[in-house]
Simulated scan of single mutants.
Amino acid sequence: MVQATELTDDRLILAALGSLPGIGSVTISEALKRYGTPIELWQTVQKDKAVDDTLQVKKQYKSALVKGILTMDLGKLEHDLNNYHIQVVGFHDEAYPEELREIFNPPQVLFYRGNLKTFKNPRKIAMVGARNCTPYGRNVATVFAAELARYGIAVVSGGARGIDSYAHEGALKGHGQTIAVMGCGLDQSYPRSNA
């Protein structure tokens, strides 16, 4: 059984890297290939105020990486992660979802809340649809998701208004597992009605 991930120094710095403006998975991946660990990358940039010229990313991303590392307040980030019960898992973590390892340009950092073992459920189905759905669509999404949940199938959706919300609601009514892939930070609920 996969347990919650402890917020180690390595994961805290990985969370910081994943929070830097203008920095995406490719830059993080290349930086970690060059420096080995998030801590080594962080400490080297803190000391040298620069990244190695051999880092295989565009100059603008190198600059954003250095600026972000030099200005990030790790204490505040740790407080926010704990305050919102947000946990972190990295691409090289054992707990990282296997399905995501297979996609093009997988996220190097995942922020999550809840039970990470849901990712390990081999039976998942994605349910998405209109935000302004009909009553029929709402009913079908809710009933269908509840029935799937009763069979142990985890429902994955985006947590948006409409069909996504009803799919999650149905999975919960069926006492099942649900995964919401959020398009916003985990420190906020969008839409607020889904809090």
Rank of each mutant, 00 (worst) to 15 (best):
G75R: 14
G75Y: 09
K33Y: 15
P135L: 14
N132R: 15
L172E: 08
R192K: 15
Q46R: 15
V2H: 13
P107Y: 02
E147Y: 01
V57P: 02
V57R: 15
P21Q: 10
A15L: 05
Y151Q: 15
M1W: 05
L17S: 07
R161E: 04
L186Q: 12
P97K: 15
A15R: 03
H168C: 00
L70N: 04
G174Y: 14
A154E: 07
D53M: 10
F119Y: 08
G36D: 10
V89A: 04
I153T: 12
L41C: 03
R101Y: 08
K117S: 15
N139V: 11
Y96I: 10
R161V: 02
T54C: 09
G137D: 03
Y190C: 03
G159M: 11
T44H: 06
K173A: 12
K58E: 15
K62A: 10
K67M: 04
S189H: 08
R11M: 03
D52N: 10
L17E: 01
L172R: 13
A16E: 08
T134Q: 05
G162H: 13
G129R: 15
A15T: 02
P38A: 14
A16N: 06
L77N: 01
F111D: 01
L55R: 02
Y61A: 13
H79W: 09
G24S: 10
Y166P: 06
Q60G: 02
A4L: 11
A95T: 13
E40A: 11
L17N: 07
T27D: 11
V155K: 14
G75Q: 13
E40K: 15
K76L: 00
L77Q: 00
K117N: 14
A146C: 06
I179M: 08
P21C: 01
V2P: 09
R11D: 01
V109W: 05
V181C: 08
P107W: 02
K62T: 10
A50V: 00
K49P: 07
I179C: 09
M72C: 12
A31R: 00
V88S: 08
H175W: 09
M182L: 14
I163T: 12
G159I: 05
G18C: 01
L100N: 11
G68P: 12
L116S: 14
E99K: 15
V57M: 08
D53T: 14
V143W: 10
K173T: 03
D48R: 04
Q46Y: 03
Q177V: 06
L186T: 00
A167N: 09
L7N: 01
A130V: 07
I39Y: 02
K67R: 07
D53K: 11
K49T: 07
V45L: 04
A145V: 02
G68S: 05
K47V: 06
P191M: 06
A141P: 08
D187P: 11
E147T: 14
